[in-house]
């Protein structure tokens, strides 16, 4: 299998071995990744809740998005780097982990959802009724909320894949 042979190659690199054999390095990356995802998801959830009309109702959507979304992009970069390094330390194990596959799919969906939202309905956001956001914006918020909860759940579930130490 093509993907499997890539994962086998990744596992054989010195970087992979270094992280795999260092408890400190792995735990530090794990901590950065977990807390980072909690922060990024927490911030995006505020935007989602605003779109759903459930938080920050007195602040226009445009201002909530403009304040929070750019700040999360940096956090998202940290997630990708720390996540990539964690993946590289046990690539073959990840290849066999259903939770990891679900997480990757959810990440793609969360990105696609955000992209479609920003490219379509959000273009008109300045004209939205501050009290009630359009149905499509609420749908985008709801989907994002569900996907992010799914990403946290799948991420945690990876640690419970067969052959793992619980913790």
């Amino acid at each position: 299998m093509f993907l499997l042979s890539i994962c086998q190659w990744v596992d054989s690199t010195p970087l992979s071995t270094l992280i795999r054999q260092s408890n400190w390095l792995f735990s530090t990356l794990d901590t950065i990744h977990t807390l980072g995802i909690v922060l990024v998801a927490g911030a995006i959830m505020l935007v989602d809740l605003r779109l759903l009309g459930a938080a920050l109702r007195r602040v226009p959507v445009v201002q909530v998005v403009a304040r929070i979304v750019p700040a999360t992009l940096g956090g998202f970069g940290v997630m990708l780097v720390s996540g990539g390094l964690l993946f590289s330390s046990e690539a073959v194990k990840m290849y066999h982990s259903p939770a990891f596959r679900i997480k990757v799919i959810l990440l793609a969906l969360v990105g696609l959802n955000a992209l479609i939202f920003h490219r379509t309905i959000y273009r008109d956001a300045a004209n939205w009724d501050p009290a009630v956001t359009p149905a499509r914006a609420r749908l985008a918020g709801l989907l994002s909320l569900v996907f992010w909860i799914g990403i946290i759940a799948a991420g945690r579930a990876i640690a419970y894949a067969p052959g793992y130490d619980l913790g």
């Binding site: 909690v38 998801a41 927490g42 959830m45 419970y160």
Partner: peptide, 24 residues
């Protein structure tokens, strides 16, 4: 393991809400 994982996931989602709101 299912119960523990579920509780940890719920705990993390609570943390996300809490930290997101407090940080803002």
């Amino acid at each position: 393991a299912t119960l523990i994982a579920t509780l940890e996931i719920v705990h993390l989602i609570g943390l996300a809400l809490l930290l997101g709101a407090i940080l803002m």
